[in-house]
Design a protein around this nucleic acid. Sequence first.
DNA 1: CCACAATATGTTTGCGCAAACATTCGTCAA
DNA 2: TTGACGAATGTTTGCGCAAACATATTGTGG
Lengths: 335, 335
Amino acid sequence: MTKKTGGPSTYDVAKLAGVSQMTVSRVMSGKGYASENVVARVQEAAGKLGYVPNRIAGALAGKKAALVGVILPAVSNVVFAEVLQGLNEGLAESGLKPVFGVSGYDQQEEERLVRDMLSWQVSGLVLTGLEHTAATRAMLASHSTAVAEVIDVDGEPIAACFGLSHAKAATDMAQHLLTKGYRRFGYVGCNLERDLRAGKRRKAFVETVVAGGGEFVGEACDDAPSSMLHGRVLTDRLMAAAERPEAIYFSNDDMAAGGLMYCLANGLRVPDDIALASFNGLEFLEALPLQITTSRSPRRKIGLLAGHYLALRNDGKDALDKVELSAELISGQTS
Amino acid sequence: MTKKTGGPSTYDVAKLAGVSQMTVSRVMSGKGYASENVVARVQEAAGKLGYVPNRIAGALAGKKAALVGVILPAVSNVVFAEVLQGLNEGLAESGLKPVFGVSGYDQQEEERLVRDMLSWQVSGLVLTGLEHTAATRAMLASHSTAVAEVIDVDGEPIAACFGLSHAKAATDMAQHLLTKGYRRFGYVGCNLERDLRAGKRRKAFVETVVAGGGEFVGEACDDAPSSMLHGRVLTDRLMAAAERPEAIYFSNDDMAAGGLMYCLANGLRVPDDIALASFNGLEFLEALPLQITTSRSPRRKIGLLAGHYLALRNDGKDALDKVELSAELISGQTS
DNA sequence: CCACAATATGTTTGCGCAAACATTCGTCAA
DNA sequence: TTGACGAATGTTTGCGCAAACATATTGTGG
């Protein structure tokens, strides 16, 4: 008798097809033997009843769910959407299904989400960055779930790690701008307290320009989430200061695009009056009137590697668990 | 004995705390009575063992999972990120956890995802738009899961529906442009085959301008996903045609921003040479050198309403199940 | 000081499935 | 003809939890 639990079960299908529940289970999963006759009868019965297997029960019986938990700081950012896309591709063959959580760049929230994911018995977990609360690390240590940390490699990974050195990307950019002859630098960014990768880039950038004989003359930052509008406002603020920089490094492309809009709207010549550089290399930059100098992060590739890793680990196989990719510096028209 | 199943169970905690499994269950869920002494002992034991409740088992025993499935066409689009944000807020109190799937604007994929979500026994489902395959509708009809369709209201909802009339938004915009004196119109869009809302806007726009004495002189469309870059390229294509429009309606803000970039880069005066209008009212428009005329869609509100609805339904309560919100026309500097 | 409620705990049961272990049947080589 | 093996199916069991149903153990008013 079909309970109010969400639909027919193997019991109902079995009765209708005149076979045992186990046979239904076998036909549905395609594992084990079944005669063509029985397969046909079971499938017909299942179709007639609108049977959908209960994976909750399947996961409980099989002791693990074909789920991977993915915890991202934000979804409004295309960067993470692209990581996700790569992950989906990397996972596609494996039957693993990604389940998302959004931490809002908050380690406490991340901890909550990790606990949640573990409680769903996920067979793999994707985390952003290498910084987590002690409790998060403890939980992960005591569970055997495979963990892949993505985006960043500057730190101590828990286990597998796929990303790039943000410090290096910023250092390269600083070097590039120094080589171009710029000496007086500014920085525009936001969400630095929470977006640790952006913080690492800022730090490396400042250190490199100073070490290279440049001068760091000022910055405009705040804690709001990054956006084009914010980039425009903060660039305005920075340029209003007594000492104007010759070149500005932005926390990311959105902010830099806002900076460019500020320049366009205020008649500043780029790069003669002010040079602009940023990080990510998102596609929308190509739509702007000037190509912004930036570093392209291998976002899709990162997701793909993480997906492959978790798929292999799920099959009990070992897999390449540390890959440092590099960001490609794109010299545009704004520097 | 802790099996290799992913950690300690209530059994282990119970033994360590010297109580029954049921008492552990009660302490963990906070339901039912428990003395302070026992609560403390159980929590200590749970902490010591790193116990994380197995919600798979809980869901099976309780006959339903505290999950809501959310199927969106894309995550790279801020629109959906904002809907998601509202949904999270609407769901926050309820203990329901959203699980996402991305359909890529493909109804077949949506069908697969719905099946998947149902197999996880979700207690609610959020779908985008009102168009689904027959099989999807059949599945939903035979399961008792609450369903909320969001974004669009132009059609026959399965059950609950929270969104806006895209036809009306486009009609309003057409009227607005007619009132402003424009008579020769063009359209730039993409992904129309799949993004049915965009298609509805286009159709209503064309009909309204023609009915209002205007002329529809041409359009540039293709099947790629929408992006600023694409908007720029397609605007170029449209403007290269023999008969140039006085005003262009874009499928959305990204495309329109691309159009604006085209104009800036090619020295076209906006709105004198060409007027631009679009749909969504995303924040990034405020960063652009000119405010683009657009309609603001109540994205967060839509998510919030859907979240509240599903939370109430999950508690067995009835809830407001149809809300048509309206898009606010924002008259910018590009028309 | 008892009756009865409120509180505090324990025991049994079953959710739906699949692993593990039977059992039946047919086929083919010896 | 037999028996041995694989193919095809059935039966039993338990995953971890929580609902349902006991059974103590307190406290409180009459």
